[in-house]
Design a protein around this nucleic acid. Structure first.
Lengths: 193, 193
DNA sequence: ATATAACAAGCAAGCGCTTGCATAATCGTT
DNA sequence: AACGATTATGCAAGCGCTTGCTTGTTATAT
């Protein structure tokens, strides 16, 4: 009564949409059933609880972000290039999986304590890759950073906040957006390139 | 049966705490009553609906941010100084009114359409002040910005995201935090300080 | 004497989820 | 190809509880 099935996948899709749009607590199990055209009880042939849906979506989000940054971190780019590519990868995940990203970045608080901890671990893992990128940039002499923690925090803030304003029908590609942000981050307002 | 009264203010305080902590839909009217040591029905001697509480808190947040940026915008500082002071003002609002800020920046989505529009207008007003600061910086020759919209978006992203990680018992003052961010924003990773 | 703010009780609606049953698709065995 | 047996998926009904909020009444403070 679980895992892969076309119906289950479509239920997940509606859950993503609704959790992203109205929040976890704001979405009722009947809303999801309704969107699939079945009764709420029938959902439970495919899922075992509402919270399981949230956890599965949040986990998918976590994995998407970690996978994206890994391929950048493991590449042979210079730190400067990695900042550009990492930003682009992050924003690409958001643009390609907007609902999942919103749930992962916004609704994960509604999880139970243990499950929230699991997601938190993934977040920490993700941030660690950025820490490495920035540190290697300092060691290579490319970056002159007085406080590395705040440089990382700035990058992650900008990258995460994208889910609040990104419009899928906008003109700019994720790479365009990343480049514009990277220009400010790398050169600053007073010496922008 | 409304407006100022010690009890009403304390109800608002609990609502701020709970909305901030568990979200609007995650907070039940009985939770608030319980925190005040009264029954849920007794709340309605002081408020007229749960959503009114949310709207009042969100409106207070909006006003706090707008007021803070106004005093910076109307000052005689240089644009560079205004960026530092504006960031500090923003972060000061968050640190001094953490719950209100979280509700204003995170939970306002739960409002009805009309009331969400009212809050959105306040957000737009706030952003306009930043737009002016950046534009005057460009005209004064202090900033070299290729895409002003993204410079503004970057600043607001960093400033807003603070509510996600700020710890009141941390060592750094809002001004410390603002300075560290401003250093990156003004000079970039490649030419910091 | 009047106004205020609390309680006790509860309403109608909604909540996540379970149960018992019907229909149909899928299967291994002839 | 035909068979009964198994499994998957939905509906109908509803359970026990919670939701935001209302009502009528009482205690207290001015």
């Amino acid at each position: 009564m679980e895992k892969k099935s076309a119906q289950r996948e479509q239920i997940l899709q509606e859950a993503r949409r609704l959790f992203s749009q109205k929040g976890y607590h704001g979405t009722k199990i009947r809303d999801i059933a309704n969107a699939r055209g079945i009764l709420s009880g029938s959902l439970y042939s495919h899922i075992s609880s509402k919270e399981d849906l949230l956890f599965e979506i949040a986990s998918d989000g976590a994995e998407a972000f970690v996978t994206a940054i890994q391929s950048v971190a493991n590449s042979s780019m210079t730190p400067t290039e990695k900042v550009r590519a990492g930003l682009a990868a992050h924003i690409r995940v958001i643009s390609n999986h907007l609902d999942v990203s919103r749930v992962f970045l916004h609704e994960w608080h509604a999880l139970s304590d243990e499950r929230r901890d699991i997601i938190q671990q993934k977040r920490d893992e993700y941030e660690m890759y950025w820490k490495d990128i920035l540190e290697s940039g300092v060691q290579a002499g490319e970056f002159v950073i007085s406080d590395p923690k705040f440089a990382r925090l700035l990058i992650l803030s900008v990258a995460n906040w994208v889910y609040n304003w990104y419009q899928p029908d906008g003109e700019l590609t994720p790479e365009d957006i990343a480049d514009r942000f990277a220009n400010v981050i790398l050169f600053g307002l007073r010496h922008s390139e």
